[in-house]
Design a protein around this nucleic acid. Structure first.
Lengths: 105, 105
DNA sequence: TGTATTTATGATTAACTATTCATATATTAA
DNA sequence: TTAATATATGAATAGTTAATCATAAATACA
């Protein structure tokens, strides 16, 4: 199981590489939530959510702990939020640049 | 083909979710390169590299253009480099935090 | 023109991923 | 103890991804 840095980085991006996992991370931006809050909010089937959460925890993107019968989740590092915001900016710029091209016609 | 933002973001992270594609992006950090430079530098089989490059271009992470018989590639937005650097920082911090825990024993 | 160089792609195969349903496990509350 | 709530997981299935080999296509070069 010898892993170089590129492999670990790849695993982090793979874990972020799903629309529902993006939605989950954005839902967790402003603080910890339990799975039971995420299921109805994002309309993801319970067993499916459980597996998505496992992927995010295993990649070290989320911390999780138990509170009674609930399992709580939070984003493990604020830099993940920054990365999500940067991706939003990249997409915004893409759209703006396409608009500029259209205006020049 | 109705796509919301989370889906597009997911596609970008999926495109970055492979160790060889991370290596390719890091190799392109300091400027444009042709495929024929990447193949020997990263020791990726030519047809395999061609497919990895296609994935990165289709996700909008790389720009590509032809120069004679060569195909050139460059990172489409400096923010992708920033994201890669942020991931490196996250991993560095992870290791440091683990060290701290050990020191406290 | 024929040859070398560079890149892309069809076909195949193996491995991995996501989803669902049913059910198990753990915790709390009655 | 029984029921309700919250979460995890085995099994099945469909779909996707990565890698490889052989070969095609495009360009440059002698």
């Amino acid at each position: 199981m010898k892993q170089d840095l590129a492999e670990i980085k790849g695993e982090i991006f793979t874990a972020m590489g799903h629309s529902n996992r993006i939605r989950i991370l954005e839902f967790l931006k402003d603080g910890e939530k339990c799975a039971c809050e995420i299921v109805p909010a994002l309309e993801i089937e319970q067993s499916n959510l459980s597996r998505h959460m496992k992927i995010l925890v295993q990649a070290g993107i989320l911390n999780s702990w138990k509170e009674g019968q609930k399992v709580m989740y939070e984003i493990a590092d604020k830099k993940f939020i920054k990365i999500l915001d940067d991706i939003s900016t990249i997409l915004k710029n893409r759209i703006q640049n396409r608009m500029k091209v259209l205006e020049e016609l």
